[in-house]
Design a protein around this nucleic acid. Sequence first.
DNA 1: GACTCTTATTTGTAGGACAAATAGGATAGT
DNA 2: ACTATCCTATTTGTCCTACAAATAAGAGTC
Lengths: 249, 249
Amino acid sequence: MSRQKGCAVKAEPRSAVDDVVLQMRELISDKGLTVGDQLPTERELCEAFGASRNTVREAMRILKAYGVVEVRPKVGATIVDNRMASALDMFSFNVMEISRTTFSDIQGFRILLEVSSVDEIFDRITDQDIVELRQINAGLKAAEGKDEASEQDFLFHTRLIRVLSNKAILDVYGLMKPVILNIMLKGKTRHTFETDTFSEHESVLDALQTRDRLAYQYRMKTHLEMGYAQFNKVERFEEGPDAQEGASD
Amino acid sequence: MSRQKGCAVKAEPRSAVDDVVLQMRELISDKGLTVGDQLPTERELCEAFGASRNTVREAMRILKAYGVVEVRPKVGATIVDNRMASALDMFSFNVMEISRTTFSDIQGFRILLEVSSVDEIFDRITDQDIVELRQINAGLKAAEGKDEASEQDFLFHTRLIRVLSNKAILDVYGLMKPVILNIMLKGKTRHTFETDTFSEHESVLDALQTRDRLAYQYRMKTHLEMGYAQFNKVERFEEGPDAQEGASD
DNA sequence: GACTCTTATTTGTAGGACAAATAGGATAGT
DNA sequence: ACTATCCTATTTGTCCTACAAATAAGAGTC
């Protein structure tokens, strides 16, 4: 009933939810809130904006979808910046788009990211990182089946990428996960993971540990191309593995 | 009271709203719905998914925020594709400083992609590519305003990336477009584009033409870091060499 | 047959209730 | 005195009902 509320100043025929979103944006910039800061509780926002809780919640959903806030029970809304991840997610709506992308593109992308970033990686990697990478690789060797092994394989590479401390790249990796897992599984057996993949990873880690750039680049590139070669051998140009895809991410 | 998570399909500890979003995505891809098609009414979705209307509405808000659906009273939800506009909107949020990390991440990503891919680029680039790149750069110089100039700037870099013939990388570039445009616009004037940016591009092209790898890498890296420096100059927040609180997550 | 009006349906908003999660204080044990 | 555990108050998550606003479709009128 009190739908007409005090906003007579600029009472556009905007929806109440959009109105609240706008007021929240103003609140954020007016108070100079940044990442890590908290927003008022839902009920406080209701009072402040003269809107019902439903309306405030729908507005909050928009901000969440934008990757601008994160909400936890009891704690409330915290300002974050996950917009890149949100953007990727919203464009992954056509999962088919990226899935149909030829596998070789993804693999070429990975070679670029993991091999060419050698300088950054060497600058940043710590002994602790290498310890954890070896643990993950041990987990790969101990994996029960192909699926678990490929998960560990993927984890190994994302853990490596993580040392770049670049969330955008990590997000992209997450987006490509379904495709990458597919590549990893193609033409491999559990035994392959346990032997070849494992030792390839180990040799990469050795190069990392001794800070041997050339060895790292050569071994990592060979490793990645190996997987791709395996893939080509089996698949040969066939396409369409979307049947069993579950998007577990 | 019927909050017992009726979906026994795969009862993950996901929120009900996220669950509905997922089911809607499945519905869309299962039925092969595309732009212009209608979704069932809210109440039908409630029944279909066993969720309350509020939950369905919040899920719908997410899809709306993603620019995937459009809702009109009485008519219902129509599938659209305004994702690019939504992306732009969500990155227009940066009245706040929350973008610093994102910006540096993206810029680091670009350096990795455009500088480190030098071998691939040199292998593949043709004279025709360089001709077109010079045309685009001429367009940059002739641009009317900042916005048009930044578009040309972006086009220049995507055209360069295009020679990699890697759709995955190109797609990722497309996704990052809103952020990249933002970076380009920060601390630049139309004049800056016309002089500095233009000549930096030209020197990069010269290096490409003469196949001078070192010069290419140096110039491109400098060019990209220049943009980032401009950005920092405006923000005026970066002090220490690396104040990374990269405690992961 | 064309126009206007009513109606039924659907979305938009409000407000209340309860469950679930949890931060922070209260309490008990050593 | 200090730690560990439990309790409570607060906050988000979900469901429900009710009504207003918008509007497509059909009924009624000229």
